[in-house]
Design a protein around this nucleic acid. Structure first.
Lengths: 195, 195
DNA sequence: GACGAAAAAGAACGAACGTTCGTAAACTCT
DNA sequence: AGAGTTTACGAACGTTCGTTCTTTTTCGTC
């Protein structure tokens, strides 16, 4: 890997940490420069604009998410087992050792009313994520794990809600039972899809 | 009402609009000043600091929420009817005519990793909100609408998740079926609590 | 209508913001 | 080792930021 890529990756790593706590908009070239030991202009040159930096951070985090959650689940046997793997993977990702919470969830409420390239990219990726969940549920139906008349999009909607509720209770309220609550909710969701 | 309170309320109204789109941190004295037709220093004098302004905005929105959602529901007959009222009220609040989404949800992810007075206040209010839902569920159990062994805190957790999922699908993804999805999820939740 | 208080304006501050530019250093490859 | 290209620096730009003063205007009350 060239020197440039190396530096760029280091910048993105620090940026993702900052963004997990303060959000994408709070990323500042100057602060990020002293965090990485670069000059403002030196750091700036890697991206060309602040928005491009934010985009790069977002893409980098999305790639990590895919590698940490989606790819391992796709290696699991299709059916309800894969869905369980998706859920556990998501929970582990949300609990991962960061300075703050999942940057994608943060960006989702940060960008949800702000048109632009960033938002479009994020919307696309989040749709893909929900499609992934719905697709897995669909496979579970085909495998006979779930009932024939299950609304898989509705399933993905509620699946997502459990994740969001977990994030809310865990990160904001600091509820130590949040993971257990999420687990119970997921089991109830699966039970409702099974019978 | 004195002239001062009047101006202050006007400022808070504009501030809540801005915060609904860009978040609490993005509130800027200068921008808010030209939005309200005041000078920076004139506006500043009403609060004394930016953080005090943010706090005032938060309190103002919380008061609106209570008046629009909680109070009307408490006038409803206790039991599952009141819960339905809470849910509908929440949905209507989230769909209300604002520039952006609900400022309290925005603040919840904006502040969830940032210690301080603002966060503490918000956590307190959100806990109270979940307690309110759990309390209503508890009443529904006592009334015989819900089954005896229902975990009302878990109920509130999932109730909250449905709201968050709605906000996500509606505001970020722009899904026109979001409200219907939320409604189906709520009915499923109630059905699970009933039998 | 005068008087004290409250509200708003105006000017200024130091700091941080994103960005541009020209130049120097470091790396990559033959 | 030398040529060519990345990579990084340092200085400066025009703005905007929150905040602090002092001064002026407006309000509520007797």
């Amino acid at each position: 890997m060239s020197k440039g890529r190396q530096t760029r990756d280091s910048i993105l790593h620090h940026a993702a940490t900052v963004a997990s706590v303060h959000g994408l908009e709070a990323l500042s070239i100057g602060r990020l420069a002293e965090l990485t030991g670069l000059s403002k202009s030196g750091l700036f040159g890697h991206f060309g604009s602040k928005e491009a930096l934010q985009q790069a951070v977002l893409e980098s985090v999305v790639d990590d998410f895919r590698a940490a959650v989606v790819v391992p689940a796709l290696r699991e046997t299709r059916g309800s087992a894969r869905l369980e793997r998706l859920f556990e993977g998501w929970l582990a990702w949300a609990l991962a050792d960061r300075a703050g919470g999942c940057p994608l969830l943060g960006a989702s409420t940060e960008l949800d009313d702000r048109p632009g390239r960033l938002r479009e990219y994020l919307v696309d990726r989040q749709r893909a994520w929900l499609d992934c969940v719905a697709g897995a549920a669909s496979k579970a139906v085909a495998e006979g794990d779930f009932r024939e008349d299950l609304d898989v999009v509705q399933f993905a909607f509620e699946f997502n809600g459990i994740g969001l509720a977990f994030n809310f209770s865990h990160r904001l309220l600091g509820d130590p039972r949040a993971a257990g609550r999420a687990d119970s909710a997921f089991r109830a969701l699966v039970a409702g899809a099974t019978r």
